[in-house]
């Protein structure tokens, strides 16, 4: 065994052991922090989603998730990968109000992700909330900062689809004002809603026959 003068060349076993111990301790630390923060993180996400759903469906106080699984729409708590979901909103008495449907598509800079409320009975969009976007600050970001634009997605007819027109020229119930200087971003929002709507309209059950709120579904948290 080399000692003293040659202490700089330890055996391979010692190298492997050092790394293994370091890895082990690190693994334990990471599992610890993951387990202890997981409940808070999931609760945060659920709360965020709930708030968004309640915002796009006015008058809603309870929700449940519907998953498109095996070519039918079923109420389910879990969501597998590659599955799409919509959220049914119910008022205090458990009466069905409408769906909150998430959609995404290309904006001016990057993907815009949004959620919109939709009532199949009257074919109306009830509300719209942008969840993620990287539109130009000061121009494109008005799609969620401009209260007039966001507000125009209330009781908006989507039959057959929404049309964005130049500011001040709306005449039909399915037309909205595009934002001056941010035509591309506003049209992107409208396009995403139209596309998501036409994707889902075939899958949703006929108006009036929505599944009732499951008692155990609670408030979805």
């Amino acid at each position: 065994m080399n000692t003293g003068a040659n202490a700089a060349a330890p055996s391979s076993l010692r190298l492997i052991l050092t790394l293994a111990i370091a890895g082990l301790i690190s693994g334990i630390a990471i599992i610890g922090i993951y387990e202890s923060t997981l409940p808070t993180i999931t609760a945060n996400k659920a709360r965020e989603l709930r708030e968004a759903v309640f915002k796009v469906l006015p008058g809603v106080s309870q929700m449940q998730q519907f998953v498109w699984r095996g070519d039918q729409l079923i109420a389910a708590e879990d969501l597998q990968k590659d599955e799409e979901a919509v959220y049914g909103g119910y008022d205090e008495n458990g009466e069905f109000v409408g769906y909150a449907i998430p959609g995404a598509g290309p904006g001016f800079q990057d993907t815009i992700g949004l959620l919109f409320g939709f009532t199949p009975e009257q074919q109306l969009v009830l509300g719209m909330e942008v969840l993620e976007s990287r539109e130009t600050p000061g121009l494109g970001d008005k799609i969620y900062k401009d209260a007039d634009f966001v507000g125009s997605f209330s009781k908006l007819s989507i039959d057959p689809e929404i049309v964005a027109v130049k500011k001040g020229t709306t005449s039909q119930p399915n037309e909205i004002d595009a934002i001056t200087g941010a035509t591309i971003s506003s049209k992107a929002v409208v396009r995403i809603i139209n596309k998501t709507h036409s994707d889902w309209i075939q899958r949703l059950p006929p108006p009036g026959s929505e599944p009732p709120l499951r008692q155990d579904a609670g408030d979805g948290s």
């Binding site: 301790i25 690190s26 630390a29 990471i30 922090i33 993951y34 923060t37 808070t40 993180i41 945060n44």
Partner: peptide, 14 residues
């Protein structure tokens, strides 16, 4: 990396 992961989860939770 361990400290970064801890920071990551802590920020995500808080």
């Amino acid at each position: 990396a361990t400290f970064v992961t801890v920071a990551d989860y802590t920020l995500l939770a808080l």
